[in-house]
Write a protein that binds this DNA or RNA. Sequence first.
DNA 1: TGGGGTTAT
DNA 2: ATAACCC
Length: 477
Amino acid sequence: MEKLGVEPEEEGGGGDDEEDAEAWAMELADVGAAASSQGIHDQVLPTRNSSSRVIVHVDLDCFYAQVEMISNPELKDKPLGVQQKYLVVTCNYEARKLGVKKLMNVRDAKEKCPQLVLVNGEDLTRYREMSYKVTELLEEFSPVVERLGFDENFVDLTEMVEKRLQQLQSDELSVMTVSGHVYNNQSINLHDILHIRLLVGSQIAAEMREAMYNQLGLTGCAGVASNKLLAKLVSGVFKPNQQTVLLPESCQHLIHSLNHIKEIPGIGYKTAKCLEVLGISSVHDLQTFSPKILEKELGISVAQRIQKLSFGEDNSPVIPSGPPQSFSEEDSFKKCSSEVEAKNKIEELLASLLNRVCQDGRKPHTVRLIIRRYSSEKHYGRESRQCPIPSHVIQKLGTGNYDVMTPMVDILMKLFRNMVNVKMPFHLTLLSVCFCNLKALNTAKKGLIDYYLTPSLSTTSRSGKHSFKMKDTHMED
DNA sequence: TGGGGTTAT
DNA sequence: ATAACCC
Protein backbone atom coordinates (compact mmCIF):
# COMPACT_ATOMS: atom_id res chain seq x y z
CA MET A 1 0.00 0.00 0.00
CA GLU A 2 1.17 3.43 -0.74
CA LYS A 3 0.32 6.72 0.79
CA LEU A 4 -1.18 9.31 -1.42
CA GLY A 5 -0.51 12.36 0.65
CA VAL A 6 2.45 14.40 1.60
CA GLU A 7 4.59 14.10 4.66
CA PRO A 8 3.90 16.58 7.41
CA GLU A 9 5.50 19.84 6.49
CA GLU A 10 7.90 21.89 8.50
CA GLU A 11 6.03 24.57 10.30
CA GLY A 12 6.65 28.28 10.23
CA GLY A 13 7.74 28.22 6.61
CA GLY A 14 6.09 31.56 6.21
CA GLY A 15 2.96 30.39 4.44
CA ASP A 16 -0.48 30.57 5.97
CA ASP A 17 -1.49 27.24 7.41
CA GLU A 18 -5.17 27.87 6.94
CA GLU A 19 -4.73 28.42 3.25
CA ASP A 20 -2.64 25.30 2.98
CA ALA A 21 -5.38 23.35 4.64
CA GLU A 22 -7.99 24.62 2.26
CA ALA A 23 -5.80 23.86 -0.68
CA TRP A 24 -5.49 20.36 0.62
CA ALA A 25 -9.21 20.09 1.05
CA MET A 26 -9.67 21.09 -2.58
CA GLU A 27 -7.15 18.56 -3.77
CA LEU A 28 -8.78 15.86 -1.76
CA ALA A 29 -12.27 17.00 -2.59
CA ASP A 30 -13.17 13.74 -4.23
CA VAL A 31 -11.49 11.40 -1.85
CA GLY A 32 -14.82 10.34 -0.42
CA ALA A 33 -16.05 9.23 -3.80
CA ALA A 34 -12.79 7.43 -4.43
CA ALA A 35 -13.15 5.70 -1.10
CA SER A 36 -16.40 4.08 -2.10
CA SER A 37 -14.57 1.76 -4.44
CA GLN A 38 -11.21 1.27 -2.79
CA GLY A 39 -11.46 2.02 0.91
CA ILE A 40 -10.18 5.29 2.21
CA HIS A 41 -7.43 4.05 4.43
CA ASP A 42 -4.29 5.39 2.99
CA GLN A 43 -5.70 8.18 0.98
CA VAL A 44 -7.46 10.29 3.51
CA LEU A 45 -5.02 10.44 6.32
CA PRO A 46 -1.77 11.97 5.28
CA THR A 47 -3.41 15.35 5.60
CA ARG A 48 -1.44 15.88 8.77
CA ASN A 49 -1.39 19.55 8.49
CA SER A 50 -0.98 21.66 11.58
CA SER A 51 -4.10 23.63 10.74
CA SER A 52 -6.38 20.65 10.50
CA ARG A 53 -6.53 19.80 14.14
CA VAL A 54 -9.68 18.53 15.79
CA ILE A 55 -10.21 20.09 19.20
CA VAL A 56 -13.08 19.60 21.61
CA HIS A 57 -13.99 21.96 24.41
CA VAL A 58 -16.03 20.32 27.16
CA ASP A 59 -17.93 22.64 29.46
CA LEU A 60 -19.96 21.30 32.38
CA ASP A 61 -23.39 22.78 33.03
CA CYS A 62 -23.50 24.93 36.22
CA PHE A 63 -20.86 22.69 37.74
CA TYR A 64 -21.04 23.51 41.46
CA ALA A 65 -24.84 23.28 41.39
CA GLN A 66 -24.65 19.89 39.68
CA VAL A 67 -22.25 18.60 42.33
CA GLU A 68 -24.60 19.81 45.06
CA MET A 69 -27.60 18.15 43.40
CA ILE A 70 -25.70 14.86 43.22
CA SER A 71 -24.76 15.19 46.91
CA ASN A 72 -28.36 15.92 47.85
CA PRO A 73 -30.94 14.73 45.28
CA GLU A 74 -33.72 16.51 47.22
CA LEU A 75 -32.39 19.68 45.62
CA LYS A 76 -32.81 18.37 42.10
CA ASP A 77 -36.14 19.89 41.16
CA LYS A 78 -35.76 23.08 43.17
CA PRO A 79 -34.19 26.37 42.16
CA LEU A 80 -30.70 26.07 43.64
CA GLY A 81 -27.94 28.59 44.12
CA VAL A 82 -24.41 28.04 45.37
CA GLN A 83 -23.34 30.79 47.72
CA GLN A 84 -19.91 32.14 48.57
CA LYS A 85 -20.02 35.01 51.05
CA TYR A 86 -22.79 37.29 49.79
CA LEU A 87 -22.69 36.08 46.19
CA VAL A 88 -24.60 33.41 44.31
CA VAL A 89 -21.65 32.20 42.29
CA THR A 90 -23.65 29.76 40.20
CA CYS A 91 -27.13 28.25 40.08
CA ASN A 92 -29.04 25.48 38.37
CA TYR A 93 -31.33 25.99 35.39
CA GLU A 94 -34.47 26.00 37.54
CA ALA A 95 -33.09 29.09 39.24
CA ARG A 96 -32.00 30.65 35.94
CA LYS A 97 -35.52 30.36 34.57
CA LEU A 98 -36.64 32.40 37.54
CA GLY A 99 -34.16 35.18 36.85
CA VAL A 100 -31.14 34.26 38.96
CA LYS A 101 -27.83 34.99 37.27
CA LYS A 102 -24.27 33.93 37.92
CA LEU A 103 -22.38 36.14 40.41
CA MET A 104 -25.60 37.78 41.53
CA ASN A 105 -25.84 39.37 44.92
CA VAL A 106 -27.70 37.10 47.40
CA ARG A 107 -30.18 39.87 48.21
CA ASP A 108 -30.99 40.52 44.57
CA ALA A 109 -31.30 36.79 43.93
CA LYS A 110 -33.71 36.26 46.85
CA GLU A 111 -35.70 39.24 45.73
CA LYS A 112 -35.99 37.88 42.20
CA CYS A 113 -36.63 34.38 43.43
CA PRO A 114 -37.85 34.00 47.03
CA GLN A 115 -38.04 30.18 46.74
CA LEU A 116 -34.33 30.00 45.90
CA VAL A 117 -32.52 27.36 47.92
CA LEU A 118 -28.97 28.30 48.80
CA VAL A 119 -26.10 26.03 49.74
CA ASN A 120 -22.69 27.24 50.86
CA GLY A 121 -19.97 26.59 48.33
CA GLU A 122 -16.96 28.17 50.00
CA ASP A 123 -15.30 24.80 50.57
CA LEU A 124 -14.20 23.69 47.12
CA THR A 125 -13.06 20.19 48.13
CA ARG A 126 -15.90 18.20 46.54
CA TYR A 127 -15.93 20.39 43.43
CA ARG A 128 -12.19 19.97 43.02
CA GLU A 129 -12.41 16.19 43.42
CA MET A 130 -15.23 15.88 40.89
CA SER A 131 -13.39 18.23 38.55
CA TYR A 132 -10.36 15.95 38.45
CA LYS A 133 -12.58 12.90 37.92
CA VAL A 134 -13.87 14.59 34.78
CA THR A 135 -10.38 15.40 33.55
CA GLU A 136 -9.24 11.84 34.22
CA LEU A 137 -12.23 10.45 32.35
CA LEU A 138 -11.39 12.62 29.34
CA GLU A 139 -7.73 11.59 29.55
CA GLU A 140 -8.90 8.03 28.95
CA PHE A 141 -10.04 9.08 25.48
CA SER A 142 -6.85 10.96 24.71
CA PRO A 143 -4.06 11.94 27.10
CA VAL A 144 -3.81 15.50 25.82
CA VAL A 145 -6.28 17.27 28.13
CA GLU A 146 -5.96 20.86 29.27
CA ARG A 147 -8.02 22.10 32.19
CA LEU A 148 -9.47 25.59 32.29
CA GLY A 149 -10.82 26.28 35.73
CA PHE A 150 -12.71 23.45 37.44
CA ASP A 151 -15.42 22.96 34.86
CA GLU A 152 -13.82 23.18 31.42
CA ASN A 153 -11.42 20.97 29.52
CA PHE A 154 -9.86 21.02 26.06
CA VAL A 155 -8.95 17.75 24.39
CA ASP A 156 -6.89 17.43 21.23
CA LEU A 157 -8.67 14.73 19.24
CA THR A 158 -6.53 14.98 16.11
CA GLU A 159 -4.74 11.67 16.54
CA MET A 160 -7.80 9.83 17.75
CA VAL A 161 -9.79 11.01 14.75
CA GLU A 162 -7.02 9.91 12.47
CA LYS A 163 -6.98 6.44 13.98
CA ARG A 164 -10.73 6.11 13.57
CA LEU A 165 -10.52 7.13 9.95
CA GLN A 166 -7.89 4.46 9.39
CA GLN A 167 -10.25 1.86 10.84
CA LEU A 168 -13.13 2.98 8.66
CA GLN A 169 -14.43 0.56 6.05
CA SER A 170 -15.15 2.06 2.67
CA ASP A 171 -18.88 1.46 2.85
CA GLU A 172 -19.13 3.17 6.22
CA LEU A 173 -18.17 6.59 4.99
CA SER A 174 -21.41 7.34 3.16
CA VAL A 175 -23.56 6.59 6.20
CA MET A 176 -21.57 8.57 8.75
CA THR A 177 -23.55 11.23 10.55
CA VAL A 178 -22.66 14.12 12.74
CA SER A 179 -23.52 13.96 16.42
CA GLY A 180 -25.33 16.98 17.82
CA HIS A 181 -25.74 20.37 16.19
CA VAL A 182 -23.83 21.77 13.25
CA TYR A 183 -23.18 25.48 13.74
CA ASN A 184 -25.17 27.73 11.43
CA ASN A 185 -27.03 24.68 10.14
CA GLN A 186 -24.31 24.23 7.59
CA SER A 187 -24.61 21.05 5.56
CA ILE A 188 -21.85 18.50 5.71
CA ASN A 189 -19.90 17.58 2.63
CA LEU A 190 -18.75 13.97 2.93
CA HIS A 191 -16.25 14.66 0.15
CA ASP A 192 -14.49 17.26 2.29
CA ILE A 193 -11.86 15.68 4.48
CA LEU A 194 -12.03 18.58 6.98
CA HIS A 195 -15.76 18.00 7.38
CA ILE A 196 -15.19 14.28 7.86
CA ARG A 197 -12.60 14.84 10.58
CA LEU A 198 -14.81 17.24 12.50
CA LEU A 199 -17.77 14.89 12.12
CA VAL A 200 -15.75 12.10 13.71
CA GLY A 201 -14.74 14.60 16.39
CA SER A 202 -18.41 15.24 17.09
CA GLN A 203 -18.97 11.52 17.54
CA ILE A 204 -16.12 11.29 20.03
CA ALA A 205 -17.47 14.35 21.85
CA ALA A 206 -20.84 12.61 22.18
CA GLU A 207 -19.13 9.54 23.61
CA MET A 208 -17.30 11.73 26.11
CA ARG A 209 -20.54 13.34 27.26
CA GLU A 210 -22.20 9.95 27.52
CA ALA A 211 -19.33 8.65 29.63
CA MET A 212 -19.46 11.72 31.88
CA TYR A 213 -23.15 11.14 32.45
CA ASN A 214 -23.00 7.38 32.91
CA GLN A 215 -19.92 7.28 35.11
CA LEU A 216 -20.14 10.57 37.00
CA GLY A 217 -23.76 11.70 36.59
CA LEU A 218 -22.70 15.01 35.06
CA THR A 219 -24.10 16.83 32.04
CA GLY A 220 -22.29 19.37 29.93
CA CYS A 221 -21.78 20.98 26.57
CA ALA A 222 -19.14 20.30 23.97
CA GLY A 223 -17.83 22.27 21.03
CA VAL A 224 -15.78 20.73 18.24
CA ALA A 225 -13.65 22.87 15.94
CA SER A 226 -10.19 23.22 14.46
CA ASN A 227 -8.66 25.21 17.32
CA LYS A 228 -9.20 26.02 21.00
CA LEU A 229 -10.70 29.47 20.46
CA LEU A 230 -13.31 28.21 18.03
CA ALA A 231 -14.05 25.06 20.03
CA LYS A 232 -14.67 27.15 23.10
CA LEU A 233 -16.85 29.69 21.34
CA VAL A 234 -18.94 27.05 19.60
CA SER A 235 -19.44 24.93 22.72
CA GLY A 236 -21.67 27.63 24.15
CA VAL A 237 -24.00 27.96 21.18
CA PHE A 238 -26.58 25.38 22.31
CA LYS A 239 -26.66 25.60 26.03
CA PRO A 240 -27.53 23.11 28.51
CA ASN A 241 -26.31 19.59 27.79
CA GLN A 242 -25.85 19.88 24.02
CA GLN A 243 -22.98 19.94 21.58
CA THR A 244 -22.09 21.80 18.42
CA VAL A 245 -19.52 21.34 15.71
CA LEU A 246 -18.10 24.23 13.70
CA LEU A 247 -17.21 23.64 10.04
CA PRO A 248 -14.54 25.92 8.55
CA GLU A 249 -16.93 27.75 6.23
CA SER A 250 -18.89 29.11 9.19
CA CYS A 251 -15.89 30.37 11.16
CA GLN A 252 -16.42 34.03 10.23
CA HIS A 253 -20.11 33.75 11.03
CA LEU A 254 -19.21 32.52 14.53
CA ILE A 255 -16.72 35.21 15.42
CA HIS A 256 -18.89 37.97 14.01
CA SER A 257 -21.78 36.69 16.12
CA LEU A 258 -19.93 38.13 19.11
CA ASN A 259 -21.27 41.53 20.07
CA HIS A 260 -18.08 42.77 21.66
CA ILE A 261 -14.38 41.93 21.62
CA LYS A 262 -14.47 41.31 25.36
CA GLU A 263 -16.32 38.09 24.52
CA ILE A 264 -13.18 36.75 22.86
CA PRO A 265 -11.37 34.51 25.36
CA GLY A 266 -7.93 36.04 25.74
CA ILE A 267 -9.16 39.62 25.65
CA GLY A 268 -9.68 40.45 29.29
CA TYR A 269 -10.75 43.48 31.26
CA LYS A 270 -7.55 45.47 30.85
CA THR A 271 -7.05 44.81 27.16
CA ALA A 272 -10.69 45.58 26.39
CA LYS A 273 -10.42 48.90 28.22
CA CYS A 274 -7.29 49.75 26.30
CA LEU A 275 -8.94 48.86 22.99
CA GLU A 276 -11.98 50.90 23.88
CA VAL A 277 -9.80 54.00 24.09
CA LEU A 278 -8.62 53.22 20.57
CA GLY A 279 -12.20 53.10 19.39
CA ILE A 280 -12.19 49.33 18.97
CA SER A 281 -15.31 47.59 20.21
CA SER A 282 -16.47 45.09 17.59
CA VAL A 283 -14.68 42.09 16.16
CA HIS A 284 -14.64 43.89 12.80
CA ASP A 285 -13.02 46.95 14.41
CA LEU A 286 -10.20 44.78 15.70
CA GLN A 287 -9.78 42.85 12.44
CA THR A 288 -9.34 46.03 10.44
CA PHE A 289 -7.31 48.10 12.91
CA SER A 290 -3.73 49.04 12.02
CA PRO A 291 -1.42 46.28 13.31
CA LYS A 292 1.42 48.77 13.76
CA ILE A 293 -0.55 51.07 16.02
CA LEU A 294 -1.93 48.10 17.90
CA GLU A 295 1.60 46.84 18.53
CA LYS A 296 2.63 50.23 19.85
CA GLU A 297 -0.27 50.34 22.27
CA LEU A 298 -0.29 46.76 23.54
CA GLY A 299 3.14 45.40 22.75
CA ILE A 300 3.89 43.13 19.87
CA SER A 301 3.00 39.91 21.68
CA VAL A 302 -0.50 40.82 22.82
CA ALA A 303 -1.26 42.81 19.67
CA GLN A 304 -0.43 40.02 17.27
CA ARG A 305 -2.14 37.39 19.35
CA ILE A 306 -5.45 39.18 19.83
CA GLN A 307 -5.63 40.36 16.26
CA LYS A 308 -5.29 36.76 15.12
CA LEU A 309 -7.95 35.81 17.62
CA SER A 310 -10.29 38.35 16.02
CA PHE A 311 -10.09 36.34 12.80
CA GLY A 312 -10.74 33.09 14.64
CA GLU A 313 -7.10 32.07 14.33
CA ASP A 314 -5.47 30.41 17.31
CA ASN A 315 -2.49 28.13 16.94
CA SER A 316 -1.97 27.60 20.66
CA PRO A 317 -1.60 23.91 21.45
CA VAL A 318 -3.66 21.93 23.92
CA ILE A 319 -1.20 21.62 26.78
CA PRO A 320 -1.74 18.63 29.08
CA SER A 321 -2.37 20.09 32.52
CA GLY A 322 -1.18 17.13 34.53
CA PRO A 323 -1.16 17.54 38.30
CA PRO A 324 -1.64 21.07 39.67
CA GLN A 325 1.29 23.52 39.83
CA SER A 326 0.07 24.99 43.09
CA PHE A 327 -2.36 24.54 45.97
CA SER A 328 -3.94 27.49 47.65
CA GLU A 329 -6.68 28.32 50.09
CA GLU A 330 -8.09 31.76 50.65
CA ASP A 331 -10.66 33.50 52.77
CA SER A 332 -12.14 36.91 52.32
CA PHE A 333 -13.83 38.96 55.00
CA LYS A 334 -14.99 42.41 55.92
CA LYS A 335 -12.14 43.19 58.26
CA CYS A 336 -9.01 41.77 59.81
CA SER A 337 -7.01 44.32 61.75
CA SER A 338 -4.92 42.49 64.32
CA GLU A 339 -2.00 40.13 64.16
CA VAL A 340 -3.74 37.54 66.35
CA GLU A 341 -6.76 37.55 64.07
CA ALA A 342 -4.53 37.09 61.07
CA LYS A 343 -2.66 34.26 62.70
CA ASN A 344 -5.89 32.39 63.44
CA LYS A 345 -7.06 32.72 59.84
CA ILE A 346 -3.69 31.65 58.52
CA GLU A 347 -3.74 28.57 60.76
CA GLU A 348 -7.13 27.59 59.34
CA LEU A 349 -5.98 27.96 55.76
CA LEU A 350 -2.77 26.11 56.50
CA ALA A 351 -4.52 23.15 58.14
CA SER A 352 -6.60 22.52 55.02
CA LEU A 353 -3.62 22.99 52.75
CA LEU A 354 -1.49 20.51 54.67
CA ASN A 355 -4.18 17.86 54.19
CA ARG A 356 -4.28 18.51 50.47
CA VAL A 357 -0.53 18.49 50.07
CA CYS A 358 -0.32 15.27 52.06
CA GLN A 359 -2.86 13.63 49.75
CA ASP A 360 -1.04 14.75 46.64
CA GLY A 361 2.22 13.08 47.60
CA ARG A 362 4.48 15.70 46.05
CA LYS A 363 6.27 18.24 48.22
CA PRO A 364 5.98 22.00 47.85
CA HIS A 365 9.30 23.83 48.10
CA THR A 366 7.88 27.34 48.27
CA VAL A 367 5.20 28.94 50.42
CA ARG A 368 3.50 32.24 49.71
CA LEU A 369 1.24 34.53 51.72
CA ILE A 370 -1.15 36.83 49.88
CA ILE A 371 -3.13 39.72 51.34
CA ARG A 372 -5.63 42.25 50.08
CA ARG A 373 -5.72 45.55 51.91
CA TYR A 374 -8.90 47.47 52.37
CA SER A 375 -8.76 50.36 50.01
CA SER A 376 -11.51 52.37 48.54
CA GLU A 377 -11.69 51.87 44.83
CA LYS A 378 -8.66 49.90 43.86
CA HIS A 379 -10.05 47.15 41.70
CA TYR A 380 -7.08 44.89 41.91
CA GLY A 381 -4.71 45.12 44.79
CA ARG A 382 -3.08 42.05 46.18
CA GLU A 383 0.36 41.81 47.68
CA SER A 384 2.40 38.71 48.32
CA ARG A 385 5.60 37.51 49.92
CA GLN A 386 7.10 34.11 49.35
CA CYS A 387 10.06 32.11 50.57
CA PRO A 388 11.56 28.64 50.28
CA ILE A 389 10.31 26.06 52.74
CA PRO A 390 13.26 24.85 54.87
CA SER A 391 14.24 21.32 53.91
CA HIS A 392 13.68 19.89 57.38
CA VAL A 393 10.08 21.11 57.21
CA ILE A 394 9.61 19.68 53.72
CA GLN A 395 10.72 16.28 54.98
CA LYS A 396 8.03 16.28 57.64
CA LEU A 397 5.28 17.24 55.20
CA GLY A 398 4.13 13.77 54.19
CA THR A 399 4.21 12.33 57.68
CA GLY A 400 1.16 13.29 59.70
CA ASN A 401 3.06 12.57 62.91
CA TYR A 402 5.37 15.48 63.39
CA ASP A 403 4.17 18.99 63.97
CA VAL A 404 4.64 20.86 60.78
CA MET A 405 2.04 23.46 61.68
CA THR A 406 4.26 25.30 64.15
CA PRO A 407 7.26 25.96 61.90
CA MET A 408 5.00 26.77 58.95
CA VAL A 409 2.94 29.25 60.94
CA ASP A 410 6.21 30.84 62.11
CA ILE A 411 7.36 31.25 58.53
CA LEU A 412 4.01 32.64 57.40
CA MET A 413 3.89 35.15 60.24
CA LYS A 414 7.33 36.38 59.28
CA LEU A 415 6.08 36.87 55.75
CA PHE A 416 3.04 38.60 57.21
CA ARG A 417 5.10 41.07 59.23
CA ASN A 418 7.29 41.66 56.19
CA MET A 419 4.24 42.94 54.32
CA VAL A 420 2.21 44.48 57.11
CA ASN A 421 3.61 46.92 59.62
CA VAL A 422 1.83 45.56 62.66
CA LYS A 423 2.78 48.59 64.74
CA MET A 424 0.56 50.67 62.50
CA PRO A 425 -3.18 50.23 62.07
CA PHE A 426 -4.14 47.98 59.16
CA HIS A 427 -7.29 46.65 57.55
CA LEU A 428 -7.17 43.48 55.46
CA THR A 429 -10.03 41.95 53.49
CA LEU A 430 -8.36 38.75 52.30
CA LEU A 431 -5.74 36.23 53.36
CA SER A 432 -4.46 33.42 51.20
CA VAL A 433 -1.78 30.79 51.58
CA CYS A 434 -0.27 29.09 48.57
CA PHE A 435 2.06 26.10 48.27
CA CYS A 436 3.92 25.97 44.98
CA ASN A 437 7.12 24.81 43.35
CA LEU A 438 5.96 21.23 43.79
CA LYS A 439 8.53 18.51 43.31
CA ALA A 440 8.01 14.81 42.88
CA LEU A 441 10.82 14.24 45.40
CA ASN A 442 12.10 10.80 46.39
CA THR A 443 14.18 11.30 43.27
CA ALA A 444 16.35 12.10 46.26
CA LYS A 445 19.98 12.24 45.30
CA LYS A 446 20.01 13.13 41.67
CA GLY A 447 17.20 15.64 41.85
CA LEU A 448 18.76 17.45 44.76
CA ILE A 449 22.23 17.46 43.26
CA ASP A 450 20.93 18.75 39.97
CA TYR A 451 19.21 21.52 41.83
CA TYR A 452 21.83 22.65 44.30
CA LEU A 453 24.97 21.98 42.35
CA THR A 454 25.78 23.44 39.01
CA PRO A 455 28.59 22.34 36.70
CA SER A 456 31.28 24.92 36.22
CA LEU A 457 33.76 24.81 33.37
CA SER A 458 35.32 28.15 34.07
CA THR A 459 37.52 27.22 37.03
CA THR A 460 40.82 25.41 37.35
CA SER A 461 39.38 22.05 36.37
CA ARG A 462 41.21 20.21 33.61
CA SER A 463 39.64 19.13 30.39
CA GLY A 464 36.63 16.87 30.83
CA LYS A 465 36.41 17.33 34.58
CA HIS A 466 33.64 19.23 36.27
CA SER A 467 33.85 21.24 39.39
CA PHE A 468 30.78 22.21 41.32
CA LYS A 469 29.71 25.22 43.24
CA MET A 470 26.68 26.01 45.31
CA LYS A 471 23.85 27.84 43.65
CA ASP A 472 22.88 31.01 45.45
CA THR A 473 20.06 30.28 47.78
CA HIS A 474 18.38 32.95 49.75
CA MET A 475 17.16 31.40 52.95
CA GLU A 476 15.51 34.12 54.93
CA ASP A 477 15.81 34.20 58.66
C1' DT B 1 -17.58 39.96 43.11
C1' DG B 2 -15.60 34.26 45.31
C1' DG B 3 -12.24 30.89 45.66
C1' DG B 4 -9.74 29.19 43.07
C1' DG B 5 -6.15 28.43 38.93
C1' DT B 6 -2.30 29.64 34.81
C1' DT B 7 1.52 32.06 32.27
C1' DA B 8 4.36 36.18 31.18
C1' DT B 9 7.19 39.95 32.56
C1' DA C 1 6.54 40.21 43.03
C1' DT C 2 3.23 41.73 40.14
C1' DA C 3 0.07 41.75 36.39
C1' DA C 4 -2.51 39.82 33.06
C1' DC C 5 -5.56 36.07 31.74
C1' DC C 6 -9.19 32.01 32.64
C1' DC C 7 -13.27 29.85 35.27
